[in-house]
Amino acid sequence: MNLTEQKIAFVLVVPLIAVAFFVNGYPIVQSFWLSLTDTNLSDLAHYNFVGADNYVNGLNDFFFQRSAIVSIRFVAETTAMVAVASIAIALVLNEKFRGSGLLKVIVIVPWAISEYAVGILGGFFLNANFGLWNGVLTNLGLIKGNTNWLTAQMALDWVAIFYTWNIAPLMSFFILTSLQTVPEDLYKMSRVDGASPFRRFRYVTFPFIRYALLIVLVLTTMAAGSATVIMYSMTLGGPGGATQTATYYSFVQFLQKRQLGYGAALSWYIFIFLIATTMLYFYLLTRRRK
């Protein structure tokens, strides 16, 4: 590494990093400051410093507690579904067959669609009056008359399914990359040994996708834990708060109740929850090694 290269690199990189530092740092600092005040959207100039009040209120807020439970359920369902779906899709894409290139294009399509549009698609698909799901089930004779699927019991599951639909493709490509590192010989060996498909996955495939799966779990948790737009476009948080996740609730505080400070405090709880979950994953998936 000579001096000129170091200089050029410095010129190319440092300004951009400085900007990135600011755009990442500003919201963190600002949102933390806001969370300590009672700032209201209708009058930004006048606010009071309230200390930890917003955080204390958050803990006692029944609706926030409820939304936290909704969030945890949503994250758990989505993560489980994404893990299964992305591994299944990747295992299929890893096979050699005619049309596998086309299947790759088809698989990746849902990833390129915006979270907003995914929610709309979900709403249309399940629409109680004219949704395709009702149409198919009626035509198959499985249901009589149209059914409302987005009920308080099922709505969150359906949002999770459509969120999985949206993010599983990218995750599956990630798993696929790691699947391609599984040595061919090891597969052959396991067949000669007579290992069952389950054992083959456990002892041959899994060790090679384990790290990729960890990343998938982390990214999915981060994404699902902060998902907001899909709840807005698919169910508006309803019915009756059934799909109102913690992020959605903090968003509502901000947008409808105009309470910037309180909303910011709630988003800090979520942030901490996500970091804690991520660390748990790392612990669980790496402790075996030691």
Partner: peptide, 13 residues
């Protein structure tokens, strides 16, 4: 790593 919602509020502000 930061949830989008946490970023949106400060930016709006």
């Amino acid at each position: 790593a930061i949830p989008p919602v946490s970023v949106v509020i400060p930016y709006y502000f």
